[in-house]
Design a protein around this nucleic acid. Sequence first.
DNA 1: TTTACTTGCATTGTATACAAAGATACTATT
DNA 2: AATAGTATCTTTGTATACAATGCAAGTAAA
Lengths: 227, 227
Amino acid sequence: MSLETDFEAVHTLADKVCAELCMAIERGELRPGDKLNEQALVERYGGSRIPIREAIQKLEARHLVKRIPHAGARVVKHTLKELRDIYEVRQELEGMACRLAAQRMSDNAIQALADLLAAHATTIAHDKGQSYYQKAGDLDFHYRIIQGSDNHRLQRMLCGELYHVVRMYRYQTSTSKQRPLQALAEHQRIVEALAARDAELAELLMRRHIQVSLNNLERLMKEELAS
Amino acid sequence: MSLETDFEAVHTLADKVCAELCMAIERGELRPGDKLNEQALVERYGGSRIPIREAIQKLEARHLVKRIPHAGARVVKHTLKELRDIYEVRQELEGMACRLAAQRMSDNAIQALADLLAAHATTIAHDKGQSYYQKAGDLDFHYRIIQGSDNHRLQRMLCGELYHVVRMYRYQTSTSKQRPLQALAEHQRIVEALAARDAELAELLMRRHIQVSLNNLERLMKEELAS
DNA sequence: TTTACTTGCATTGTATACAAAGATACTATT
DNA sequence: AATAGTATCTTTGTATACAATGCAAGTAAA
């Protein structure tokens, strides 16, 4: 099961087109501000305009596009302030998820998370600069903790709404060489807190981890703007 | 500007039907588990199936209905666990909003909030048992604090997604005679914390306020189940 | 009597066609 | 030359029609 397919069964054409467009946006093939012309999408993905429109509406629910009546849909474009807002909420909700996970995850699940990090360590040692897989590993780590919160609504808000936008920025910004190693160290401290069932510490560490992530993102965005 | 119309301009038929259905669900005219038959809705609200389907999709984005491919849409039905999950998230996000509001709201806005509570006090003294307007007042209070957080994403998540579901339960459960007075006292303490710019206390008080709200809701639901 | 299969019906998903709103380009006037 | 107004054209919103899926009722066999 890949994170790409979004763990959702696809039964209708609208679902399929939605998944395709979602990937295209997250990967940066469709960039912020780009227009989604319905007729053009029909020619690209097949089908008729009806399922295409449904797909666009689903993307709107995921906060990936903004629709304006009679003017069409465009890929969302965030100001720096809005990006900070998103990360502020993400900090709160993932901090919460981590706190709850410390109280509710099974010992086995925590052990499995520790094993996952060990695997990441060897991956980073071998594939220096293969940032794509490292990013996927990072997402997997966060995903498991969110699942560990055992709060279904929290899971939907984080995985179903916030994370699509977060992924959109993560995939597109380059990662510095030393960041994966630093992130791994932070992940390991979080797992230690989980294993110790120290909910307060686990929450604090997760919040800081995400703060660092935002700082990096802001720096990279400024560099790209400058170049 | 009424809370009912959801402060969103309505330019298309789909938007209009969505707003109508939203009200119907929040008011309990459509009850959890009820099916939304597209043809029936066409006969009730006019238009054709296309805008009706769009309206239903918008309701899905608000977490008010659940659609299953080839099986139709039904009003969401929450287990007690899921209701607790929702309030757990609400506690976190409104606590956050209150903390941020203590740091970011203008002095004028805080004063206006205090004035609003004074008005509520006289309303409660006069309209004993007129719980509808008291509930509207409560929503207005929470709404203003959320706006005060100055975090647009947080506002969208709370007002655009969580609150529709919360309202759905609030309108339908009766309120005890003494609860409005107790709630007002809690609101007043929160405003005092905001005025003192005590973010930590403001967050704590808001979290407790929502916890009380959940306890009341659980008690009422159990009573209704028993009867 | 129960169960499994088949057939018909109701409902949703999709395609095509038409209406209306917005954008653009051109012309006329100041 | 600049601007306002108008006409055309593109694009979205909506209606109607068809296809396909799922559900239910009814029948036949065990």
